[in-house]
Amino acid sequence: MNSVWTIARKELSDSLRNRWLLAIAIVFAVLAVGIAWFGAAASGQVGYASTPATIASLASLGIFLIPLIALLLAYDAIVGEDEGGTLLLLMTYPLSRGQLLFGKFLGHGLTLAFATILGFGVAGIAIAVLVEDVGITSLALAMLRFIGSTILLGWGFIALAYVVSVRASEKPVAAGLALAIWFFFVLVFDLLLLGSLVASEGKLNPELLPWLLMLNPTDIYRLLNILAFGEGRQLSGVLSLGNDLPIGQSGLWLGLVLWCVAPLTLAWALFRKRRI
């Protein structure tokens, strides 16, 4: 456990040193405050629209940004150490591959978690203080849910980045594959789903369809943040399938957790096979 923490601690201090943590927090804060302030712009005025609308907009932007940041943060975790020549040295220390990978995950995960809490937390407090007659309880609840799911989504993509990082032999390859992962889950998946829905002309089992959304962590994340406000009025496109999902919020949370655990386990299994 000690060596896991030693690795995590180095990652964490690296991201403080190169200002990654600060930069991510600032991006999140600016994003959240911007959306909150100009949320009503569509209706022709500047100001706070409503908590559900703000969270929905944040989540929609979040699915683009958070996977990207997580992948960028973590794609070189193992392949970078290998190219830098330190992986060989680390492996001669009393440190198993699992401990190294989990230490990295802890370090990167905490970096992302701190940045998220700091960035969106500050934005949430700013909204609570500056916007008149906003429901504090509902805002706090929505913000907590949003921050929690954002962290889990980020961890999921950190784990996915590791799958790439333990397999790739060079950093540029890992970067390319990480971008491909982002492209697939954020842009292609929903299109594929929609396309197959249309092409199947209703022949697909309607009870199976909503479950397909669970195959994409970004969809789970959006459902979680939008469905929580009751009726799925704002669900559009493939997300409307989410109304038929027979699992509640806890099921969605579990889905996000599984999307962290499964890729991390896969990365660990692949890392054990990597030749050093």
Partner: peptide, 12 residues
């Protein structure tokens, strides 16, 4: 204790 050939470290 092991010193690899062409030892490298974290440059930062």
């Amino acid at each position: 204790g092991y010193l690899p050939e062409n030892v490298m470290f974290y440059p930062q």
